[in-house]
Design a protein around this nucleic acid. Structure first.
Length: 826
RNA sequence: GCGAGGGUUCCCGAGUGGCCAAAGGGGCAGGACUUAAGAUCCUGUGACUUAGUGUCUUCGUAGGUUCGAAUCCUACCCCUCGCACCA
């Protein structure tokens, strides 16, 4: 086998593609297809094999669709603002911009060497003011529409990062970057986007039928829609709303628990209980987040009593550590008989437990109104109401509605829906992010920056040290009020990096637009994304945010789509040799350039998609890559010797069948299966002395989506027209797929198998094989005599069973059956 | 605890009711070529079976449905990943 100079071939074709702008696209030319991979966060360590897999998956699809005649938009850009870059830059004592741009340069070189067919002219970086200007613009539009608000609330704070963290950046109570640093809870004034205004629509997945079920389920859980009622409990002459999913248990309420973090807790505490409550709250504040999770349910009496609106019972109000301040009013009506958490609490503080649902198989037993030491746990199932006044005897499910109606009539409550999803905290106290376009003026208060003054640029000369560098940048902070022209100070918070990635797919449609966020005509043409590729770890963050932004921009009249992408594909994670997630710190990173230096990038691409189905997690191992290399080398050698002429019927059948099947496999993103079929086709081609040009081209075209460089090279060799990357995807003809030939082939294989089987059993060397076939089958075997000989490597003679003259010393010919010749070995 | 995904022959990995002892690759073994090694090619790779047949065992474990199960159902064990007191 000849050695292939991969390096030279790769360079040659990458240059040609770039020079001829092969993959540049314009809107309007026929049917579009938009393939997008989640854009990378350019880290200094560059891209590893996992990235390479991700982009290869997209590239194969983009090439496939392009060859199918679609006008394919396949862009790349960089999500370059964010905390890790800032931290890395500080560590290296360089400006984040310098650091980031260096990283991006490196990324581009790496990505180009993978042979990815991006339209590079559309590339952008989110740290470019021309990009983040539009983050600010969207922020202002949201502000205008009342979707932005600033509020004081408890937030996660990393003392080492010196910033607020999003929930997803807190792992087990520790910071995601500093895994030994406890995250603190601080009460801060922060910016929020009202994503909850879109919660109902976000919870509707009707248009996402080509998204993985897992993702939709994760989002659904995250959004956490629950049906129930808001019930008004009177405490100290004031009505406090409380959310419950079980209004049917309202007669069982024996106490209330308000969150220890509730902003209005003080109003509930009586003078006698003041000290006790304060001690309790202080104690909670002094323990770490992690410890809180392990704590028992604890509480303390506030001194106040609530009135149960259904029966006017007077019940004590406790402050508790297990009630969330920002969900369902921050207070719960406790039904210890039918809620395990309330039960635990009641047991601990010896509170009354009242049974109001007679559950399941339990016969209606004596209902005790006092604490029941015998009870071990709450009954949380359905049942029949007992001890519930006029609702006794009603099925709990029905009672929910009846009790709600009863409360509604008396204006004591109403049917509601509650969500787990909270508003999106987008402010960060860090430098490397999009500045929030707000100014504080002594006279006018909080003033949004007018559109014409955008972008608010990040100052380049800042001091890194303690806290947010923007706070110490006087040139940044000090400004004029856009309204009164008086002295004003800029907001120093920047936006969460997820703001940048929530709409980037739209900017690819019109990346250089200086006047507008994008030209509506262009986005109308390209959007939505037809295939979006990325990891499932983004299910609850990025993929919710991007849906939110899409809906918002639609409501501004800028888009006519409801969802960002039609189809979503989650590629699997490529682990290191050790089976762990690839990371620099673990030292298990596999670099594509290292692999491609050894085997060629086409080999690496082919291998990556051969290992397993692209949606499965796999461990990297170089072991199998030799197989891919061998295949490419064989193909190369084959093109040296193959003669262009006519294809046998068998080859025609094989080629057409392969086209048919692989087209489906690629469409389904089952590249691994496609590659196998392509290799099997090649094995058949190899057997032949001459092949029709069209069939040879079909083979090469299919190969080209996986191995674009070597395919271009071979395409050139056989004088193919133009670039194979821009050639037409082969079509198949059903009528050329010859079932009869397939069957005959099976018969031949079976025969060869039989002969080997006999040989292995008798363990004797034989030189000659005689086979006896049914007369009507003789022709088939005669036609394939060379093939059989080649396989068994013995001389062969074929007789029909009714041949007058035949060599058959053992009388084996009698054993011949249809499709199964008799065999004699000598 | 809740939710999701998964456990396949030496290894990686296809396979969701019969065509399955189960694709493909890797490894290993044997053979051809070669002075030899390597490369390449061919064959084998659950067990038994001295003429191609057949039988048995196997797809996490144990049961079940079915004429028939790796594939469907039930229970359990193990692994991975999300969310974790959401009332």
């Amino acid at each position: 086998m000849k050695e292939i100079n991969f390096k030279a071939i790769e360079k040659k074709w990458q240059n040609k593609w770039e020079k001829k702008k092969c993959f540049q696209v314009k809107e309007g030319k026929g049917k579009k297809f938009y393939v997008l991979e989640m854009f990378p966060y350019p880290s200094g360590s560059g891209l590893h094999m996992g990235h390479a897999l991700n982009y290869t998956i997209g590239d194969i699809f983009a090439r496939f669709k392009r060859m199918q005649g679609f006008n394919v938009l396949y862009p790349m850009g960089y999500d370059s603002l964010g905390l890790p870059a800032e931290n890395a830059a500080i560590k290296q004592k360089v400006n984040p911009k310098t650091y980031t741009e260096k990283s991006i340069k490196n990324f581009i070189v790496q990505q180009k060497s993978l042979g990815l067919s991006y339209d590079w002219d559309r590339m952008f970086k989110t740290h470019d003011p021309d990009y983040y200007k539009w983050d600010q613009w969207i922020f202002l539009k949201m502000f205008e529409k009342g979707l932005v608000h600033k509020k004081q609330s408890p937030v996660n704070w990393c003392p080492k990062c010196n910033t607020v963290l999003a929930n997803e950046q807190v792992h087990n109570g520790k910071c995601w970057i500093h895994d030994t640093v406890e995250v603190e809870i601080k009460y801060l004034n922060q910016w929020y986007l009202k994503i909850t205004d879109y919660v109902e629509e976000l919870n509707d997945f009707k248009e996402l039928n080509k998204w993985p079920e897992v993702i939709k389920k994760l989002q659904k859980n995250w959004i956490g829609k629950s049906y129930g009622a808001e019930v008004l409990f009177e405490i100290n002459k004031e009505k406090w709303p409380v959310f419950t999913t079980r209004p049917d248990t309202i007669y069982g309420v024996t106490f209330m628990v308000v969150s220890a973090q509730h902003s209005r807790l003080k109003e509930l505490v009586t003078d006698e209980q003041k000290i006790e409550v304060e001690n309790f709250v202080d104690k909670l504040n002094s323990v770490s987040e992690e410890e809180i999770e392990q704590l028992d349910k604890q509480g303390v009496f506030t001194g106040s009593y609530a009135i149960n609106p259904i029966n006017k019972e007077k019940i004590p109000v406790y402050a508790g550590n297990f009630v969330l301040a920002d969900y369902g009013g921050g207070m719960v009506m406790a039904v210890p008989g039918h809620d395990q958490r309330d039960f635990d609490f009641a047991k601990k503080y010896n509170l009354q437990i009242k049974e109001v649902i007679s559950g399941g198989n339990r016969k209606e037993t004596q209902v005790s109104l006092t604490s029941q030491p015998s009870l071990k746990k709450a009954y949380i199932g359905e049942g029949v109401l007992v001890n519930s006044g006029k609702f006794n005897g009603i099925q709990s499910k029905r009672a929910i509605n009846e009790i709600i109606r009863h409360l509604e009539k008396r204006k004591l409550g109403k049917k509601t829906i509650n969500f787990r999803l909270k508003d999106w905290l987008i402010s960060r106290q860090r430098y490397w992010g999009t500045p929030i376009p707000i100014v504080y003026c002594d006279n006018c208060g909080l003033v949004p920056i007018p559109e014409k003054d955008l972008p608010v640029k990040l100052p380049e000369r800042v001091k890194f040290g303690k806290g947010n560098p923007l706070e110490t940048s006087s040139s940044f902070i000090n400004t004029k009020c856009p309204k009164c022209k008086g002295k004003a100070k800029r907001e120093t918070d920047t936006m969460d990096t997820f703001a940048n990635s929530s709409w980037y797919y739209l900017r690819y449609c019109d990346p250089q637009n200086k006047k507008n966020i994008f030209d509506k005509k262009k986005t109308d043409y390209w959007c939505p994304v037809d295939l979006y590729i990325g990891g499932k770890e983004h299910a609850c963050m990025h993929l919710i945010y991007i849906r939110f932004y899409t809906k918002f921009l639609r409501d501004l009249g800028l888009l006519k789509i409801n969802e960002p992408s039609i189809r979503l594909f989650n590629q699997g994670m490529l682990h290191g040799l050790d089976g762990e997630k690839m990371s620099k710190s673990k030292g298990n990173v596999v670099l594509p350039e290292k692999v491609s230096k050894k085997y060629g990038i086409d080999t690496a691409r082919l291998f990556l998609v051969s290992i397993a189905s692209p949606d499965k997690d796999v461990d990297w191992s170089e072991k199998g890559i030799q197989g891919s290399l061998k295949f490419i080398k064989k193909v190369f050698d084959y093109f040296d010797v193959v003669k262009i002429g006519k294809s046998s019927l068998k080859i025609q059948s094989k080629v057409n069948k392969t086209i048919k099947e692989i087209t489906q496999d690629i469409e389904n993103l089952r590249y691994n299966l496609g590659v196998i079929k392509l290799r099997q086709l090649f094995e058949n081609l190899e057997q032949e002395k001459e092949i029709a040009r069209k069939d040879l081209e079909s083979f090469l075209k299919i190969l080209s989506v996986f191995c674009p460089h070597v395919s271009e090279e071979l395409w050139e060799k056989i004088n193919g027209k133009g670039f194979i990357s821009l050639a037409k995807w082969p079509v198949f003809y059903e009528r050329k797929i010859n079932k009869k030939l397939e069957k005959q082939e099976e018969q031949i294989e079976k025969l060869v198998e039989d002969i080997y089987n006999i040989l292995s059993m008798i363990k004797e060397k034989k030189k000659k094989v005689y086979i006896y076939v049914l007369p009507n089958e003789k022709q088939i075997y005669l036609e394939n005599i060379d093939l059989i000989k080649k396989k068994i490597r013995l001389s062969l003679e074929i007789f029909a069973v009714n041949d007058k003259i035949k060599y058959d010393p053992d009388g084996k010919s009698r054993k011949a059956k249809p499709g199964k010749p008799a065999v004699y070995l000598e």
